[in-house]
Design a protein around this nucleic acid. Structure first.
Lengths: 266, 266
DNA sequence: GAAACATTGTGCGTATATCGCACAAAATAT
DNA sequence: ATATTTTGTGCGATATACGCACAATGTTTC
C-alpha cells in the first residue's frame, strides 16, 4: 500500500551489460521492507520481489553478513545500520544542514511545523523538518514521502518547472482524491500551478488531509535554480487561509530570500 | 574523516558462496559518498573502494539507471531517492514513530533538545529527535552518529548490557579525547558504566564537546529488554549538572515508564 | 496425533554475467 | 605542445550467481 508513485521500473531492460544484477536485486530486497512488511521470511521476499527463493536467500544473507539486516532463524529485519545508506545523501547534500537551523527558528517564531523537501519522481521527499506537534494522522519526518500533486510543497515544485514537464509527471501519477477537496483532474491542476507560479506560493486547504492546511514556496540557489520547497503546515481549525497568507507568508519569503544569498550547491 | 568506528569488515571472507558480490560492492560504493566526498568521479570511487575502475563504473551506472544516483558526465552524486533505503528502517521499526511525538512534547516542556538512539557497533545512531536550537557545533538529526564511549546515550546503552560485552566494544573502538574531560581509558569507563547502571542514568559533562552537557537513560520494551536510549542535551552555560538531575531526570523517567507500558517490538 | 502443507537449507551442473586487463580516445594538467 | 590522468569499451577466461530438485524441518489442519 505504499503509494510511492514509481516511474517506469525498467529493471531487466538496459541490457547494455553495464548493469550489475546483484546490486539491482539487492536494492529491491531492501525496499521490500516497509511499514507493512517490517519482518520478512525468505519466501515472503521471494514472493514480493518475484525472484527465486535461493537468490533472495543469498541476498538476505549478504545483508546480514554486512550488518544491514538481522536474522532470528525465521524472519529477517533491517538494522539501524541501513540508515547509513540513506544518510549518505543528507550528508552529501549541503542544503539540509544549512536549512535545518533556519527551519527550527522559523518553527519557533510561527509555532508551527516547517519543512523542506525535494522532488523524487511524483513524490516529494522531506530533507529537513522542524515539527511542533502532530497535526497530521501520519508522522512526518526526514525521509518521509508525500504525493506531489496534492501537497503544498509538491505543488510549489511542479509550478516552477516547465509546464509540459509538470504535466507529464501529473499524468503519470495516480491521483486519488484524499479528501473531498482534492483537485485530481489534470486541467484544474495545471491551472492551479499557473496561479501558484504567478503569485509565488502554493496553499493547500485540506486537500491532503481533512483539518490540515499548508503554505509553500520554492527555494532557489544563488544562480536562480529551484532546488527545493519550503512550507508551514497547521491545523485548519486554528489557522485560517487568511492568516497563512498574512502571517506565515512573510516568514517564508524572508527565509527564501536569505537562502537565495547563501546557497551555492556543490 | 568519517569516524564511524567500524567493526571488522570481513568482506571477502565468508566464502560460503552464499554471498552476492555485486551487492556487497554496490553498498560499499554508496557508502563511499559522504560529507567529504559528495561528488565522485569513477576513478575516485575506484581509489576509495580499492576496486577495479571497470567494476565501479558498472556499479555506478547501475545506481544511475535505478535513479539512486545521477551523473553529469564527469561526477556522480546520490539522489534523494537513496533515502528510500535508509528510511525503510525507520518505517519498519515501530519505536521511532511511537516516540517522536512524545519526544516533541518533552522538548516543549523542558525547552531543550531530546533524542532517542540505538547502538550500531561502537556508534549510536539517532532514530528520533526533537531539537530546539543548535547547541552543538555539528547538526544532529535522525540518522546521525556519535561515538558510544563519550555520549550520554552511548554510555546508557553500554551500561545496561553485559559488562564483558561492553568492554569488548570499548576495546575495539578508537577513543580519542574529544575534550580535556573525556574519559578514554577502559577501567575508568567500566567504572562509570557500573555507576550508571546503579543510578539508572548517565550524565556527560562536556566530554563530547565543550559547552555541552547531556543526560540519558535506557528505554525498555514491555518485556524488560533495553531497546534504545533517551536523552536531553543542553548548553553547559545555561544548565548545571544539578539542574539536569533535579529538573530533567523526572521527565526522562516519566517517558521511560510510559514507554515501558506501551512498547512491544515486532 | 497424524497427515497435509509450507518453508527452509543445501548440493550441483550449467550458463551467463562479472571480472579485470588492455588499448584507444578524450580530457586535464604541466 | 607534451605529459599525465581519466574514461569508454571490447574481449576472453573464470568464477559466480542461478534455479531446479531433494531432504529436512517447521507449521497448519482436521
Amino acid at each position: 500500500m505504499s503509494d510511492l508513485h514509481d516511474e517506469d521500473s525498467k529493471v531487466s531492460k538496459d541490457r547494455n551489460s553495464n548493469m550489475v544484477g546483484g546490486l539491482i536485486k539487492g536494492l529491491r530486497v531492501i525496499e521490500t521492507f516497509d511499514r507493512d512488511h517490517p519482518r520478512l521470511a525468505i519466501s515472503d521476499v521471494a514472493r514480493e520481489t518475484d525472484m527465486d527463493r535461493a537468490t533472495c536467500r543469498r541476498l538476505l544473507l549478504t545483508l546480514v553478513s554486512l550488518g544491514y539486516a538481522e536474522h532470528d532463524g525465521k524472519f529477517f529485519k533491517l538494522t539501524p545500520r541501513i540508515l547509513r545508506l540513506g544518510y549518505s545523501y543528507l550528508h552529501t547534500a549541503s542544503l539540509p544542514s544549512i536549512v535545518q537551523p533556519l527551519l527550527e527558528q522559523m518553527s519557533r517564531e510561527t509555532e508551527e511545523s516547517c519543512s523542506v523537501s525535494v522532488l523524487d519522481g511524483q513524490s516529494i521527499v522531506y530533507i529537513a523538518r522542524a515539527s511542533r506537534q502532530r497535526v497530521m494522522s501520519i508522522n512526518l519526518n526526514v525521509g518521509s514521502r508525500l504525493p506531489a500533486y496534492c501537497s503544498s510543497m509538491g505543488r510549489a515544485l511542479l509550478a516552477f518547472m516547465p509546464p509540459d514537464q509538470a504535466r507529464k509527471l501529473l499524468e503519470k501519477a495516480s491521483r486519488p482524491a484524499l479528501t473531498a477537496k482534492t483537485i485530481t483532474e489534470i486541467l484544474p491542476l495545471m491551472a492551479e500551478l499557473a496561479k501558484i507560479k504567478r503569485q509565488g506560493y502554493a496553499i493547500i486547504d485540506e486537500e491532503l488531509e481533512l483539518g490540515l492546511r499548508s503554505i509553500a514556496l520554492p527555494l532557489y540557489d544563488n544562480r536562480g535554480n529551484v532546488v527545493a520547497a519550503l512550507n508551514i503546515g497547521a491545523q485548519a481549525a486554528r489557522v485560517s487561509v487568511k492568516k497563512m497568507r498574512d502571517s506565515f507568508l512573510p516568514h517564508l519569503l524572508h527565509l527564501q530570500a536569505d537562502l537565495r544569498q547563501v546557497y551555492a550547491p556543490d
